[in-house]
Design a protein around this nucleic acid. Structure first.
Length: 159
DNA sequence: GCCAACGTTGGC
DNA sequence: GCCAACGTTGGC
C-alpha cells in the first residue's frame, strides 16, 4: 500500500541558506529545527517522496523560490548533540534525541520568486498557512491544490 | 527598526 | 499548574 504524497513548505533565511546554495549542493540535511510543532512534523509525518516548497523568509523578496523532494524521513538531528555546533541543545541526549531532521533533494528553482503579494492575490494560494497572521512555523503543511497552484503561478511544470 | 504573535522559562 | 517576563520570529 503506497501512501499518498504529502506537501510541505520549508522556510529558510537566504543569508543562512539560499535556493542558489541548495541548487549547488543538490542533497542536504534539513537540520537546526528547534520548534516542537515543526519537530513533530519532521519526526512523525514527513515521508520520503513528499514534496517541499522552498521559501525565503526575512529577505528581499520574501518568496517561494523553488522546490525539493524528501529523500530521507525523520532521524535524530546530530547538530543538537555537538556542544560546538551553533544548534547545540544540552537537553537533547543521544539515547533520547529531542530534535529531528530530514534529507531533501533539489528539484527546481523557479524562474522568478513567487512573492507573498502574488500568493495573496491568487485564489488557489490565498489560504496558505504561510499567509496567515502570526504564522511562524518553519515547517508548514501545504495542500495538493496549493502545490499545483504555486506551479501554475510560477509558470513551471511540477517535478 | 518596529512590534505583534508566539514559544519558552522559571518563580510561586 | 499558572502566568508574567522574556526571547525569537519574521512581516511590514
Amino acid at each position: 500500500m503506497t501512501q499518498p504524497r504529502q506537501y510541505w513548505l520549508f522556510k529558510s533565511e537566504p543569508e543562512e541558506y539560499s535556493i542558489d546554495a541548495f541548487a549547488k549542493d543538490k542533497r542536504i540535511h534539513w537540520f537546526g529545527i528547534r520548534n516542537y510543532q515543526a519537530r513533530n512534523f519532521l519526526r512523525d509525518t514527513v515521508r520520503v517522496d513528499d514534496r517541499v516548497l522552498f521559501y525565503h523568509s526575512n529577505a528581499e523578496p520574501m518568496a517561494i523560490v523553488g522546490t525539493a523532494k524528501v529523500v530521507k524521513s525523520g532521524y535524530p538531528d546530530h547538530t543538537a548533540l555537538d556542544p560546538k555546533a551553533p544548534y547545540y541543545d544540552p537537553k537533547s541526549k543521544p539515547d533520547q534525541p529531542t530534535w529531528y531532521m530530514v534529507d531533501i533533494e533539489f528539484l527546481q528553482k523557479f524562474p522568478e520568486p513567487l512573492t507573498r503579494d502574488q500568493l495573496r492575490d491568487n485564489a488557489g494560494t490565498a489560504d496558505m498557512v504561510l499567509l496567515r497572521k502570526g504564522s511562524r512555523l518553519s515547517i508548514q503543511p501545504v495542500t495538493e491544490s496549493e502545490w499545483q497552484a504555486v506551479h501554475k503561478l510560477a509558470g513551471v511544470k511540477e517535478k
